[in-house]
Design a protein around this nucleic acid. Structure first.
Lengths: 200, 200
DNA sequence: GTAGACACGTGACGC
DNA sequence: TGCGTCACGTGTCTA
């Protein structure tokens, strides 16, 4: 009978729709503010959330990345999306582990009279990366973009000069002893003891 | 004419389906390995991906969190999903900034002969949080779960004893001078200069 | 009364 | 041949 086959067909199709809609409902429960949304709009919102989460994830793992060969100073304004913390500056410096560089950094930041909300030191394979999250000391400066741009410039300049100072001393060592360059490869995969022993 | 109305209707429905399918294709392009998947399976995969990204995001922001009042030692195995780095141990210790505790931690880790792939020191408001990402020195241990459980236990024990040692000395100070407890509130929102000056 | 969204059943195509 | 998936047109409901 063709009639029975048709019934099976329609029922199977019904099952299929149910499966899809169930997943759609799951998505509705996962993405906030989509409870009573269009199917299409829901999917659009899912896409947006997916992008946002991906951005956050890569941003978070970016913080873990540490260039092994190039020294760098980065200063950027952190809008921080949801946390409603306006005009927060995030400054980072990545270079070889050098004793004394930490106190230089500390002195430089002290001189700028900032509120340091987070200070992070990471070491990896003889390299170090310092990240500072901070904002201006004065309350009134919070909304002033120009103040933060100036502050960012000052921080960048201060860090840069510290970097130059220490890389200059390294270049001096490089010229005086040829074995120094090799040392960078020797300490390419050291244990913590050799890589951070001088630093701590 | 009813015929024109019907045509509009079907065309509108066609447009709607096109919108939905376009979003579905966008999702396919965003989630790897779903190029030729069922509509339902695709959505299931999207849900899984969304969950995974959410987990990573919360985990990443968790790493930034630092308990202000309670000292803690955490040792956990990090499967790390995509990076195919099996059996990596992540150990963290959070406590008040105390000079000398860093060298104690270093000595403890040195004694265990581990490969430290990442060492991180973060300071915030007079508190410090150290995170170490590491794996066993020996290659053969990589797949051995028991070895890593034992290693994890050893690390936890070592960190715990360091924590106890320093918190014990703090309790001693607490009993000897009443002003000490207040000090914890005095340094609740210090600048970097006062919070990490002793540590560095 | 019209525009948009949804579920339904059906024909078509692939394994 | 059946089984699964898809696109399509239609009926129905709500705003």
């Amino acid at each position: 009978m063709d009639i029975a086959a048709l019934k099976n067909h329609s029922e199977a199709e019904k099952k299929r729709r149910a499966r899809i809609n169930a997943h759609l409902d799951t998505l509705r429960s996962m993405v906030p503010g989509t409870r009573k949304m269009d199917k299409a709009s829901l999917l659009a919102e899912v896409i947006a959330h997916l992008k946002e989460l991906k951005r956050q994830a890569t941003e978070a793992s970016e913080g873990l990345l540490m260039p092994l060969d190039i020294d760098e100073v980065k200063v950027e304004q952190q809008e921080d999306g949801l946390h409603s913390a306006p005009y927060v500056i995030r400054a980072s410096i990545c270079c070889d582990c050098k004793p004394g560089i930490l106190s230089d950094l500390r002195q430089a930041l002290d001189a700028l009279h900032l509120i340091i909300t987070r200070a992070e030191i990471a070491t990896l394979e003889g390299r170090m990366k310092n990240v500072f999250v901070m904002s201006s000391c004065k309350e009134g400066d919070s909304g002033d973009t120009k103040v933060h741009q100036f502050l960012g410039g000052s921080i960048h300049q201060a860090f840069r000069s510290i970097l130059d100072k220490f890389s200059a001393s390294q270049e001096f060592l490089l010229k005086s002893t040829l074995s120094n360059k090799r040392r960078r490869f020797d300490s390419f995969k050291p244990s913590l003891s050799s890589s951070s022993g001088d630093l701590w």
